[in-house]
Amino acid sequence: MADSRERPSSTPHLVSARRITPSLILSALAGVFAIAIVASAAIRAPALDWSTFRQYLFSSTVRKGAANTVLLTILCEALAIASGAVVAALLMGSNAVGRIVGHTYQWTFRSVPELAQLLFWFNLALVFPQFKIGIPFGGPSLWATNMNTVMTPWTAAILGIGLHEGAYLAEVFRSGFLSVDRVQIDAARALGLPRRKLVVDIIFPQAMRVIAPNAGSRLIGTLKLTALASVLAVPELLYSVQSIYSRTFETIPLLLVATAWYMLMVGVLRLLQHWLERRYEMPQGAAVDVVGAEALA
């Protein structure tokens, strides 16, 4: 079937483009030069005290702070995913009351600045001094305690950041699900698939293609939002370095310590995002050339 005729060398043929071009060499030189300027200035600037940077980079306070930032991010993101999924389900559901609840949630939690939300949660005791589980409207309570024992800085930070982030994730989830071709639902229903299988096995994996990149960048945003918890004295990364430089006044080296850790964490999250995107990638038509030709034969 295959034709073994060779291409005559006289036929005009495409020359592959050069990979190293003058413009590439020029921009590389410019880049090296720029880095050299910044680096030499940074090394000589007295405020950028690199020995202090090295001294604190792995100090126990900073390491604990970094660990707390990771923990806080995980807890906030868990709450954000849970609330986002519920709100997205309400928004896409057939229940009109549910849709109103979903829209109101998004409106509320997207309107108020994150920092203000944290302060609101933390000061909840001013409105409701008692935290009570029981029958509402003055009925008997099963369990009651002082609000301030429940609403610790940690709780306030998790609620403030998590619920706010949930309002945005709901939108990410919703757009993901809407991106799936409606006819996929027809095809799955025609096979007699139960609703749960349809959602989990057919719709969700296809929605993830749109959800993964957006949710990934939102997660990086959540990581950085956890720095807000420093105003409630949660001992996360930013608060940890602040607690050191408020004593030593080595502000910039310690902010650079925090920067280094944040960059490391975001680097890891970027890898996670990349993995997630690859995981839900759909193979595109690369093999068509070969199999298409066969089909015609």
Binding site: D186, A187, L193, M282
Partner: peptide, 24 residues
């Protein structure tokens, strides 16, 4: 109910004009 319809649909195969295969 949707789940009862799903049971009945398993007796009926359908082929669509635009195939509608599951791309993933």
């Amino acid at each position: 109910k949707e789940c009862e319809v799903a049971l009945r649909r398993r007796e009926i195969g359908m082929v669509f004009q635009q195939f509608h295969l599951f791309p993933h």
